[in-house]
């Protein structure tokens, strides 16, 4: 197995040394009844150590497919990576054997899914499911693994963990199971945690607990987190940097403060305007929420030019003909829009 260039490349600055995950020009395709559709199209991003990067988008934007592609968990044989590569600490994950990839999952990359009930085995006690990965990845014996599992359960505030190891998933509440999923994902001290809608199925008070927990884990272990979500509120609460996806592509990327306070893509602007913000409501019916007209186009019937042009209030003939490049509009703030400079007036 060849380790890739990055690791051995000369002249690397300390800046690039901090990058723990680099997704380069990733394209992922699915076979469907209508032929091949490209769910992710030329996606690139770098994740730095200790960074929380959010990838936000609506259904069909490709955000979850991006995370499955990174983890090597695409449904087989329907989905495949058509182009690009994923470098984890400089190693090309696509070049690794299944065995090496298994080693990386756990201690290197760990993932939390949206539905804890469907990700856990219903007929195995929680303790077995926790110790299994710990023994496998950390090479511990059963007694030590059990200690580690209890310690992890305590760190995610499961009461009386010793007694609950023998319980089955259905004996836990939804919030507890999601905390268990996080405990399992974090139990081998992964350098990167990929969390796909980790709080979507949960109540808001439990969601606040989980967000706190993820923040604490980053602060304590120095792990990096990729947070996949549709919820702009969750992004604003937790992430350092955000990527907005639309129809399989990045449309905007930058620091959270910049993107929220000065969005440079009409889609981001529309998403933010469509949300009622707590504490800012006027009299009922006085202010309308911004509507984004139309619907997300189907991936097999994308419009020519900019993929958002059909729904965009700023669109001109150029937008309907030419695909805008993804460019730096301000230092560290990128967007793919021909008219990003015009958004200034519209920004709140």
């Amino acid at each position: 197995m060849t380790d890739t260039i990055l690791q051995t490349a000369p002249g690397k600055t300390s800046d690039t040394a901090e990058i723990v995950l680099s997704v380069q020009n990733l394209s992922t395709e699915f076979h469907s009844k209508k032929g091949i559709v490209r769910a992710v199209d030329g996606m690139s991003f770098d994740l730095r150590k200790r960074e929380i990067l959010a990838i936000v988008g609506e259904s069909g934007s490709g955000k979850s497919v991006t995370s499955l592609s990174i983890m090597g968990l695409l449904p087989h044989p329907a989905g495949r990576i058509a182009d690009g590569r994923v470098l984890f600490e400089g190693r090309d994950l696509g070049q690794l054997s299944d065995r090496d990839m298994r080693k990386i999952r756990g201690t290197g990359l760990a993932m939390i899914f949206q539905e804890p009930l469907t990700s856990l085995n219903p007929v195995l006690p929680i303790g077995r499911q926790m110790t299994e990965g710990i023994m496998q990845h950390l090479g511990l014996g059963l007694a030590e693994a059990r200690e580690r599992a209890i310690e992890m359960m305590r760190s995610v505030s499961i009461p009386a963990p010793e007694a609950r190891l023998k319980d089955f998933p259905h004996q836990y509440s939804g919030g507890m199971l999601q905390r268990i999923m996080i405990a399992i994902a974090m139990s081998c001290d992964p350098r990167i945690l990929i969390a796909d809608e980790p709080t979507t199925a949960l109540d808001v008070t439990i969601q606040a607990q989980i967000l706190d927990l993820m923040r604490t884990l980053r602060d304590r272990t120095g792990a990096s987190i990729v947070l996949i979500t549709h919820d702009m509120g969750v992004v604003a609460e937790l992430a350092d940097r955000v990527i907005v996806m639309y129809c399989g592509r990045k449309v905007e990327e930058g620091l959270v403060e910049k993107v929220f306070h000065r969005p440079r893509h009409p889609y981001t602007l529309g998403l933010l305007g469509s949300l009622p913000i707590l504490g800012q409501a006027g009299a009922v019916g006085d202010t309308e929420l911004t509507e984004i007209p139309g619907v997300v186009p189907s991936l097999d019937a994308l419009p020519p030019g900019c993929r958002f042009s059909e729904r965009c209030g700023f669109a001109t003939d150029r937008c309907r003909a030419e695909d805008p490049p993804f460019e730096e509009a301000a230092p560290g703030h990128f967007t793919a829009c021909w008219h990003s400079d015009q958004l200034e007036r519209a920004a709140r």
């Binding site: 607990q209 604003a236 609460e237 504490g279």
Partner: peptide, 21 residues
């Protein structure tokens, strides 16, 4: 506990409840 889509309100005081319903 409501996540607010405004990063400048991130530092506000929050009451995080313990445990489950």
């Amino acid at each position: 506990a409501v996540p607010v889509a405004d990063p400048s309100r991130r530092g506000r005081e929050r009451i995080v409840l313990k445990g489950d319903v």
